[in-house]
Design a protein around this nucleic acid. Structure first.
Lengths: 241, 241, 241, 241
DNA sequence: AATGAATGAGTTTTCATTCAT
DNA sequence: GATGAATGAAAACTCATTCAT
């Protein structure tokens, strides 16, 4: 399973051309993101102490993303990662404790990337539902280009269960907040209670994830059209009349 | 990602104590399911030729389900499977060509299992949406007891991509048929076109899968309540008034 | 530092020609020894289940003794052991959990071998001190042929500290018993007390071990002469007159 | 097995609280010892050329002693040594050619240390045997505080065989000289010949080493008492009457 | 059919050593 | 002199698969 629509804040994070060099761009965005928040869960002992080290670490991380994203965790060897990163095998272990650890770092990265990919779209829409529609379109677009997202976040269920859960729980929470806001503003119907509110958020997330898989990764229909169709369902439901 | 709503029947999949001995019970259920339909085996050359062989094959398959379901594909060894099945290591290869092959057989089984688990519920409901509601409740109930379902079908994305895709595509197709039927009967609003119809089916499936993860596997809220809340969203959408 | 003089019992353990094929012989003796005592500390899960397996395990053990004995623990690789044993690399792990584990098994073996090598000599002597003299001669002879003994028991201080300690403590205990007996029989002077008795045993053991190193391993003086000289010291001390 | 009795002096090697801060104290003692004699360095090319360099070299050596002494040679990495010494990894190679080389330097140091620790005691005693008794007591005291001595000298058997042999041969030689002196002075019985004289020296050394292990390192009985008991054996032997 | 011993390619990880700054 | 990033050979260990019995 992979990412889905995301947060409100930092709508200006991605300002440049939304297309070019997605990977590099996100890497940059991520770096910024990291400085915004304390980002605790990194291994201090292995943190680079020089600029050169920082560059190397990033090269490894990027290579790992590409490799895990295309071959999967089990079929990717450290050698392949370092070969792609153009560093020696041992260099990997200068920055990461194990294969699992890079993967974990990557899950955080990807989770954040998804959030950043949809954030601007959310802000654009007038009204909650329009925001969600645009976010879904942005998400479809994003996963179409970054298919690694799915492979990595889905595989986290097995390799990094905590990261996996964290990703979906925090995503659902952000959705829930947006829906609550929409309700407060009177655009959305009241949920029946707390459980109902949570059900709505998870249902919406599930929708998005599966539409992303079907129409972003496996097929490439027009994101806007798919988002529009989904939004109709979301607005009015299925019932006739 | 895991299974979702499906085909015909009762709703009380498990009649005994709802919690206890989930594994054994399901194994039995599965065996029944298997007898309903021959369950196409991939490898004829290794098909058991005697009754004793049939029993051994089943023991291995059941053991594999339990092991893969709890440790995942990579962390499960053939030895562990045969140990649990109480057969010798070499016996495994009398019935399966490789570790991947058992897994594939298992994916088919689980996919079928999900279908059978919700089928009775679907038939009970009066009207398409009521059927879907009961099916979701049955599904939540099922995955609560059979958490292996998720682990196995989700991991198929990496180990058996064809099986993974087959599962979701056929599930979505069945949903689409039901929705088409409901539209024909006038209960449901017309979709805007073919794309829209498919979007609806995938959206519904995604909803179910994620609600299953959140409220069936991770948490154990009352399936009926969750299903009711989800159904409200499905019927009327989110829009106020 | 390695083994030294040893026990009373089982004086008939080694009946054959005391010279030929020391290694094979001891292996046999050991096997017998093992059956006498329950020998608990072996890994059951890896115990051979067939005669063929038993043979293979012994081949590995013998190869390990030769390799560790000549290159030392650190400089011996599993590959070298299996190459010498003429089995595949993986076969090693069918019988032992790790490099450390074979080593531990070997320490037990060698400790026992030392005991068996001197036991007959002890029984031969008339009187405690004469027994000790003959035991030392036998020991010098033994370590001259089995230099691995020293390398393995000495290295146990680092690789298998428990085994190391067990070896020396049990050896010292056996010596202490013999001295106590000699005292009871009136051949030996009373020790001043418990501490004194223990000091005597350890002193005697230390003497033997170092004489073994100097005159058995490094140089090859006549064992009988060395033993005689040592025994004179032991009997009468150094004091003039 | 490690060092043993040696050369000249006081007996109260450690005057402060006999237990506390053993390590620091000995480091100081060592430094002193080193200044007494230049301590021949193996590798001139890497000899420090400045005072700062001299300090750094010493920090590394002290750290190496502590690490090798507690973890052993194989389990100690250069990183751990430099970390403890608070210098950068690369600095190590400014002063030593290899891991083996520091170890060799350390073996020399420790060997010398042992000699210095017992030297004062030897001088105190009136008569050879009394000197030996005091030396043994000093030795027991010393190894009780400096357990690294054993670990390092014993491990030299594998890492620095020449150093190992040199240590014991020169120690034995010194003992032999003292015994010869005692014989010349008429305190000690004549040995039967050259072999006999050497046997006496090695036997005495072995005694001391093992008593040091048993009563200095593993257990902490009163050094004076142990030494007295050992000396009784040495003076009069074991024979009754 | 069933057994379990044997195989060896493949992987991860470590760590002494080098070297540019 | 000091630093720490980079290197890659080496080694332990795993495990799916084969095969003789």
């Amino acid at each position: 399973m992979a990412g889905t629509s995301a947060a409100k804040g930092s709508g200006k994070t991605a300002k440049g051309s939304p297309e070019a060099n997605a990977e590099a761009e996100t890497a940059a965005a991520l770096s910024k993101g990291r400085r915004d928040q304390p980002v605790p869960l990194t291994n201090d002992a292995k943190a680079p102490r020089t600029a050169r080290g920082e560059t190397t670490r990033r090269k490894i991380l990027d290579a790992a993303r590409a490799e895990f994203g295309s071959r999967g965790f089990a079929d990717t060897g450290i050698i392949e990662i370092t070969r792609r990163a153009k560093v020696a095998l041992g260099t990997f272990y200068t920055y990461f404790d194990s294969k699992e650890e890079v993967f974990r770092a990557l899950v955080r990265d990807m989770s954040e990337q998804v959030r950043l990919a949809v954030a601007p779209a959310l802000a654009e829409g007038r009204g909650t539902l329009e925001g969600e529609e645009r976010a879904l379109a942005a998400f479809l677009d994003f996963v179409g280009k970054q298919q690694q997202v799915y492979r990595i976040i889905d595989e986290a269920e097995f390799v990094d269960p905590e990261g996996f859960r964290r990703h979906y729980e925090s995503t659902a929470e952000r959705i829930a907040e947006r829906l609550a806001e929409g309700t407060a503003e009177g655009h959305l119907a009241e949920p029946g209670g707390a459980l109902s509110a949570e059900v709505r958020a998870w249902a919406l997330m599930g929708m998005n994830v599966f539409l992303g898989l079907r129409f972003g990764v496996w097929g490439k229909e027009d994101p806007a059209e798919v988002a529009a169709a989904a939004n109709r369902l979301l607005r009015e439901g299925l019932k006739a009349g």
